[in-house]
Each structure stands twice: as structure tokens, then as C-alpha cells.
């Protein structure tokens, strides 16, 4: 094929295309891999010191909670043994006569790194590790689920618009109108009772499923709205029309043209959603509708901590510090991710 740009020009002659000359100069090196917006984002993110540190901390938390059995094996403790009451451990007492931990800082010792729980003498280190595991992975599950739901619903509403969008919008409004915290508390027993005979013991896995369902049902709306508005603006872009002109199916347009462009807002939203879900799950356990004894759970540690606050304030220390660091880092990470995606937003 001949290149018409180099052919004779009939109008004002531009025989030597300056653009062409410029581009062929730049491209001396043969490796012409362009850098995708994603790669650019990753580069910007790597330059962000705070973001990198926070990412490290967050990953650290996930890893140690995943390794909870390993770590407790090293410390030689487990979250279920009542070290204060079990006769096996009578030779090394951890509690005094009032049921309070012996020693400083809630009974920190070589055996019990973070101290022990008043009354029962359970090992706080083991409880925290296992508790974090329960909470983090529950939150991860819930967040992934509600993000996925939100994205799908938002995509459908945003792309198809019109009547579909109208009805989806109304349903979203309906779910948004629930006072969430109240409904969590009110609904949890209902959901549980719906599946399990109240006279029987509710299995732990089932409580987890119930929490998942309730948080999922009442949590997808924010994501759906975000995705919907992003898609609404993307839908009008000319590259979507170009795809339509080429005959692409709506499914292909959503998948190939629109979805890649909503990844960044989804990711940013994810980094904000996860810590808030952790707090919500903790709140549920704190309010007594989440996990129950003896399942170790981060939120329940606070409930217990509040109970012991007067006699043994140190009990709250380790779970509290861990939670504050984790949530703080996660939120800072969210900010960094947002900045990396959108360098214009600034600080």
C-alpha cells in the first residue's frame, strides 16, 4: 500500500509532514511498548512514600492474620484455653484472687505476649491474631461481594439508562433509606432465625453467613451509585459511539470499553470501603449481634475491653492500637491510590 500522506498534496502542500518527521525521530529505540494508564498509575504510586509504607502495613496485617495459627504456635498459646481457670496451668497462675491479670500491662509475660483476659485468663495475643483473622477476611468477603454487586447494578443502570435506570435508582433509594446501624442490629437475629431453629445452637459459620448477607444487602448502594454516574458520563464519550458504529454488542461495549475505565474509581472506593466494613463488623460484634463466644473476633475484644475497662484498662491497649494503625494506614492508602489515579486532585 502506498502512503497517501507522502503522495502529492492537492491543497496547500504539506509534503513534509512535521508530525510524521517528529514521530519517526522519537522512535529510534525499537522497543515501543507504550505505558498504559495503569502502569503510569503504578509508577506514581511507587513514588508516594506514605502510600508505600501504608500499603506495607496493610499487607503486614493481612499476612499476620492469615498466619495466626503459625504465630500462636510460636507463642505456644491458643485463643480458647482459659489459662486462669484450667487446672492444667495451675502451676503458673496468670490471675490474682480478684480475677485480674498478674503483672504489668494486663499481665504481659514471656508466655502471654500481650497479657491475658481478666476473669478467664485467655491469651490476648492469640485472641487478637485469630480475631483479626476473622474480622479482616470477613470484611474482605463482604467488601468484594458488595463491590461486585454494586458494579454490576451500576453498570446496568448507567449503560442502559431510561426506564431500567429509573427503577434501579428507586430500588437503590429504598435500600438507602434504611437506618443502617439499627437495621444491622434488628435484622441479624431475624436472618439467623430464618435459617436456624432458635432452640438449636447457631453454628459459627452460619453467623458468618448471616453477617455477610446483612452487610451485603445494606451495603451495595454506594458502589452502585458511583459506578452508575461514572458509566453515565462514559456512555456519552465518542469512543463508545465508535464501538457502536462498528457494530459492537452492548455486552462487548460494557466489557471492553466501559469496564476498564471504571476500574480506577472501583479500586479507590474499595480502599475506603474495606476499613469501614471492618469497623461495621466490629460494631456488630460489639453490639452483641455478631460473633459470640468463644469465636475470637476483633470487635468482641472491644466489647470485652469495655467491660473490663475499669479494673484492667490495659486489655484494650493492644487491640485498640492495632485497629487504629490498621484503619489509619488503610485510609491513607486509599488517599494515595486516589492520588496515583488522578494526579490532578492533589493534596
Amino acid at each position: 500500500m502506498t502512503s497517501p500522506t507522502k503522495a502529492e498534496g492537492s491543497g496547500p502542500a504539506v509534503a513534509l509532514d512535521p508530525e510524521l518527521a517528529a514521530t519517526s525521530e522519537v522512535d529510534k529505540p525499537k522497543t515501543l511498548e507504550g505505558r498504559s494508564p495503569g502502569q503510569l498509575m503504578w509508577q506514581r504510586f511507587r513514588r508516594d512514600r506514605t502510600g508505600m509504607i501504608c500499603a506495607g502495613v496493610v499487607i503486614f496485617f493481612f499476612v499476620i492474620s492469615l498466619c495466626a495459627p503459625l504465630l500462636t504456635a510460636i507463642s505456644g498459646t491458643n485463643p480458647y484455653t482459659l489459662y486462669g481457670q484450667d487446672p492444667t496451668y495451675a502451676d503458673s497462675p496468670v490471675l490474682d484472687d480478684f480475677g485480674l491479670p498478674l503483672g504489668y500491662l494486663g499481665g504481659v509475660s514471656g508466655d502471654h505476649w500481650f497479657g491475658v483476659e481478666p476473669q478467664y485468663g485467655r491469651d490476648l495475643f492469640a485472641m487478637l491474631m485469630y480475631g483479626m483473622r476473622t474480622s479482616l477476611y470477613m470484611a474482605l468477603g463482604v467488601t468484594v461481594l458488595l463491590m461486585a454487586t454494586g458494579v454490576i447494578i451500576g453498570l446496568i443502570g448507567g449503560y442502559f439508562g431510561g426506564r431500567t435506570d429509573y427503577w434501579i435508582g428507586r430500588v437503590t433509594d429504598f435500600f438507602l433509606s434504611f437506618p443502617q446501624q439499627l437495621f444491622f442490629i434488628a435484622f441479624m437475629p431475624v436472618v439467623t432465625a430464618f435459617f436456624v431453629d432458635p432452640r438449636e445452637e447457631t453454628p459459627t459459620y452460619f453467623r458468618a453467613v448471616a453477617i455477610l448477607i446483612v452487610l451485603w444487602l445494606l451495603g451495595w448502594m454506594g458502589m452502585a451509585r458511583l459506578v452508575r454516574s461514572t458509566v453515565l458520563s462514559l456512555r456519552e464519550r465518542e469512543f463508545v459511539e465508535a464501538a457502536k458504529v462498528s457494530g459492537a454488542s452492548p455486552w462487548r461495549i460494557v466489557r471492553k470499553e466501559i469496564l476498564p475505565n471504571v476500574v480506577s474509581p472501583i479500586l479507590v472506593q474499595f480502599t475506603y470501603q474495606l476499613p469501614s466494613t471492618i469497623l461495621t463488623i466490629a460494631f456488630l460484634s460489639f453490639a452483641g449481634v455478631g460473633f459470640v463466644e468463644p469465636t475470637p473476633d476483633w470487635g468482641k475484644l472491644f466489647a470485652a475491653g469495655a467491660k473490663y475497662a475499669e479494673q484492667d484498662p490495659a486489655f484494650m491497649f493492644f487491640p485498640g492500637v492495632a485497629l487504629v494503625i490498621f484503619i489509619l494506614c488503610f485510609n491513607l492508602l486509599g488517599d494515595s491510590v486516589r492520588d496515583a489515579f488522578d494526579p490532578k486532585s492533589g493534596r
Binding site: 507504550g34 494508564p37 495503569g38 459511539e241 465508535a242 462498528s246 457494530g247 476498564p260
Partner: peptide
Amino acid sequence: RSDIQMIFQDPYSSLNPRQT
């Protein structure tokens, strides 16, 4: 479809930024 194509006005919004 393949016989009728279109060139758009805005070169910035007519190309998907996430595709090569």
C-alpha cells in the same frame, strides 16, 4: 455496519484511554 463508518470531532474522547 462495516460499510458505513464515522470519524469523530473530538480526538480526545473518541479513543478509549485504556486501550492501545
